[in-house]
Design a protein around this nucleic acid. Structure first.
Length: 795
RNA sequence: GGUCCUGUAGUCCAACGGCUAAGACGGCUCGUUUACACCGAGUAGACCGAGGUUCGAUUCCUCGCAGGACCACCA
């Protein structure tokens, strides 16, 4: 592309490069390679929304990792996945086409989801391409490293195959339990899909009567509509006020149900009146309590979020209405003592924003409790970057208290591959994609009988052995995380290319955000362990959040979104990449993004361009004998080479980027170039040919090495310049460096000296090219005397 | 409540326990010097607070304060 013709680095230049790269498939994976494999389990973005700035930045980092590893001689597997399963897609379809799956039916709704997905196909990959991301492939397909979609038959087959395997091992069971229920989406959700928000609610003090004595006690609650589900009233064993009530019964207000009173440490003396009504629907800890006490839960809320027959006069009302109504009733009867506004941490469904209710439903579970310790053990074998991020995983592991509910009552997801007939379950053969809700049961499917107590199935034959049975296809689907948690297995061809899988497992790196440690990372470790018994990753790199300029989370409602597409359009991928690296260490802290600062990095790109143009004015001679000055600067960049190797290897691109920028502006351009300019031109023949050649050689050497070191961060501009020098950086190997000789202090001394001369000339009002008298070269810089005198025109 | 991370100029971000605390963006003042006005040269501006360890602390330790995160609890 002729460096001379490029005035400024621009988006147009980038477009030519990235278009070429995208078509050329430069980074295809050679499965017969003898190199070591470096594999990256990239996070598949959801395709129904454009890439946001956070994803853009993290993919920049992943690309730096991939490019560095290629230089280090690895065969790099860096695939792009597209997540197309699950609730986000369904919610998108519901909004876009203004439909409800419960009204238009399953088939039509799935069509809507497909329609939505087809429209959003290429935007995501285009964005990545513009950023210069070196995915193994930009083509979809079954080849190793091809773009994969999580809703493809191949992917869903693997999800089902692993499900079938888990079922056979007795790790999947169905149970009817109280669970997190999303009223909006009409499905059970897992604990990991819940977030907590502070919502204002009212704390109501209500009078209750002790049976027999008629004594009145006051109990506080935020959920008075659940009084009908109260199974016990408790107080703290140390609470003297209520000791005399132990073993007595209390009558629930309005319902007059007899409820036992007991002491229990869960009650806190200081909170409320010290008495707690234990309901079977408040939250999961209540449910645990019911189990512990052997109480039978009463479920008063149905799956649509309305009260049922257990709620007596509240039957048929929505939860909120029921709450208002019962408070009215209590007021009328004079049973409401006091009301107080409090903020209450309320469980919210992450996907829909609906308040979670606790409702009893039969769901499939994957056993996870019994593997907690194993997962802890294998996670110790994984390197976490930064180390402290492992704590997030440990905290989560410690808090897991129930098995993983994996069935969902939704539609656009992997179907659960089961058919049922009474207490029999038909489990098809693995390796195929099944859609039980609209397909006949395969005759060769295994038949299991469900044992009522253990919940585990026992195999008793095949479907063909039960010709009289009518089989009903399972209608539920699998939790999206059941798909996502095998991404690392899918990309290395688990169950489809055993030889390759064995060679490459465990996957080298999982890069991901801290907010999905408890979902994506944890579930992947669990699934990987259940499939292989081993840790599935060597390294895990956890990044923090990308915030707006003011350090706030970006969100549509705040209107502070920075759109990477816009940045790419205005400033290009290289500016975005360089800014990402310069801005901070993403694994250590959150980072704030600002368009202004990204724009500012364009200056650096042009500086690189211009310095290169200058160096290219000279031909690179064969290596001559170098001067002390030349050696000093070469030693320094050799040291940087060594240092950056270590940084890049530990996923630190921030510090090298800072030092490279400094090297470019401060050390190389402002000082080395300025000093040796006259020696390189050598117009007045003050220097010998060898001395002049030494300057030219060193200019080229420093520039080349600079480009090589910068290449992982800025691939487009560095390769463009290197091409001019007949160097192909895409295939360049990391240089073997000679270390330990650099003398930065000496370089600073040179820089100080230069500055002082420039200042003197400026103060004297003379041009920098003019002669200056009376300057003494400092002792330490004696060996550079000839260069310094010539550079400053000292007489 | 528990745990973790982070506190350096207006903003962002550096600095093996030691020298004048670096650089960028933004200010201000000058200036076209054969790669570069997306430039060059200057200039103003900062270590959250209190103890401790040390000859010496921005750096290490303790406590506090502030911001962020995760977990638990919240009747």
């Amino acid at each position: 592309m002729g460096l001379k013709n490029i005035k400024n680095w621009s988006v147009e230049i980038e477009k030519k490069i990235t278009d070429k790269w995208k078509k050329a498939e430069l980074y295809n994976f050679n499965s017969r390679t003898k190199k070591k494999v470096y594999s990256i389990d990239t996070p598949p973005p959801y395709v129904n929304a454009p890439i946001h700035i956070g994803q853009a930045i993290t993919y920049c980092f992943m690309d730096m990792i991939a490019r560095y590893r290629r230089m280090k001689g690895f065969e790099v597997l860096f695939p792009l996945g597209l997540d197309r399963n699950g609730l986000p897609i369904e919610i998108g379809a519901e909004k876009k086409f203004k439909v409800s799956p419960f009204k238009i039916g399953r088939e039509k709704f799935i069509e809507c989801c497909r329609k939505l997905l087809n429209e959003t196909s290429t935007e995501t990959t285009d964005t990545f391409s513009k950023m210069g991301i070196s995915f193994t492939s930009y083509k979809e397909g079954k080849h190793i490293g091809g773009i994969y979609k999580t809703d493809s038959p191949e992917y869903r087959t693997l999800t089902q195959t692993t499900f079938i395997g888990l079922y056979k091992k007795g790790l999947v069971y169905e149970d009817t339990r109280i669970n997190n229920w999303d009223i909006k989406l009409q499905t059970t959700v897992a604990d990991s899909e819940i977030e907590y928000k502070d919502i204002e609610s009212t704390f109501n003090d209500i009078k209750w009567k002790i049976k027999g004595t008629g004594e009145e006690v006051v109990i506080g609650t935020t959920r008075p509509e659940l009084i009908c589900t109260c199974g016990m009233v408790i107080y703290n064993p140390d609470d003297k006020r209520y000791r005399h009530l132990n073993g007595k019964k209390v009558l629930s207000p309005l319902f007059n149900k007899e409820i036992p009173i007991k002491s229990h440490p869960m009650a806190d003396i200081g909170k409320g009146t010290g008495l707690v009504m234990m309901c079977s629907a408040g939250d999961l800890s209540d449910i645990q309590f019911f189990r512990e006490q052997g109480l039978k839960p009463v479920i008063a809320i149905n799956k649509h979020g309305t009260m049922n027959e257990h709620a007596g006069f509240l039957n048929g009302l929505k939860i909120r209405e029921a709450r208002t109504k019962i408070i009215e009733e209590l007021k009328k009867k004079g049973l409401l003592v006091k009301q107080e506004k409090i903020t209450h941490r309320t469980p919210i469904s992450e996907r829909s924003g609906a308040e979670i209710e606790f409702i009893e439903m039969p769901e499939y579970y994957l056993k996870q409790l019994k593997f907690k310790n194993e997962i802890k053990k294998i996670s110790k074998k994984i390197n976490f970057y930064p180390k402290s991020s492992k704590k997030i995983l440990d905290d989560w592991l410690n808090s897991i208290s129930i098995d993983w509910p994996i069935s969902r009552r939704r539609f656009y997801a992997t179907p659960i591959p089961l058919w049922g007939s009474g207490d029999l379950i038909a489990l098809p053969k693995p390796g195929k994609y099944y859609v039980p809700w609209k397909e006949q049961v395969p005759k060769n499917a295994d038949v299991y009988i469900i044992n009522g107590t253990s919940k585990d199935g026992k195999k008793i034959g095949f479907v063909k052995d039960f010709p009289d049975k009518e089989w009903k296809g399972e209608e539920r689907v699998l939790d999206t995380w059941m798909d996502s948690s095998i991404s690392e297995l899918f990309i290395i061809k688990y169950k489809s290319d055993d030889k390759f899988f064995k060679k490459v497992y465990p996957v080298t790196l999982r890069p991901q955000g801290k907010e999905i440690v408890r979902t994506w990372l944890y579930y992947t470790l669990l699934r990987g362990y259940l499939e292989t018994g081993k840790p599935c990753f060597k390294d895990v790199w956890i990044h923090q959040h990308i915030l707006d300029e003011k350090g706030h989370k970006m969100s549509k409602s705040l209107g502070n979104i920075i759109d990477p597409q816009e940045i790419l359009k205005d400033y290009g991928g290289e500016a975005l990449r360089f800014w990402s690296a310069i801005e901070g260490d993403l694994s250590r802290g959150d980072f704030s993004s600002s368009k202004e600062k990204i724009r500012a990095e364009l200056k650096t790109l042009n500086k690189i361009l211009n310095v290169s143009k200058f160096v290219m004015l000279f031909n690179k001679p064969k290596k001559p004998r170098l001067t002390e000055l030349d050696k000093t600067f070469i030693d320094y960049i050799e040291d940087l080479t060594e240092e950056f190797d270590k940084s890049y290897e530990t996923y630190d691109f921030h510090h090298p980027a800072l030092k490279l920028r400094r090297f470019l502006w401060e050390i190389f351009a402002s000082h080395y170039v300025e000093i040796v300019k006259s020696r390189a031109y050598n117009n007045d023949k003050k220097f010998s040919k060898e001395e002049s050649d030494a300057a030219k050689y060193t200019l080229h050497f420093l520039l080349e090495r600079f480009l090589v070191l910068l290449y992982p961060i800025l691939p487009q501009i560095t390769t463009t310049i290197a091409e001019e020098k007949k160097i192909n950086l895409l295939k360049f190997e990391w240089p073997k460096s000679k270390k330990g000789k650099s003398n930065l202090k000496l370089i600073y001394e040179i820089m100080d000296f230069n500055s002082s001369v420039w200042k003197k000339k400026k103060d004297a009002g003379i041009s920098l090219r003019n002669e200056i008298k009376g300057i003494k070269i400092p002792k330490g810089l004696d060996k550079f005397k000839k260069d310094l005198i010539s550079a400053h025109n000292i007489v």
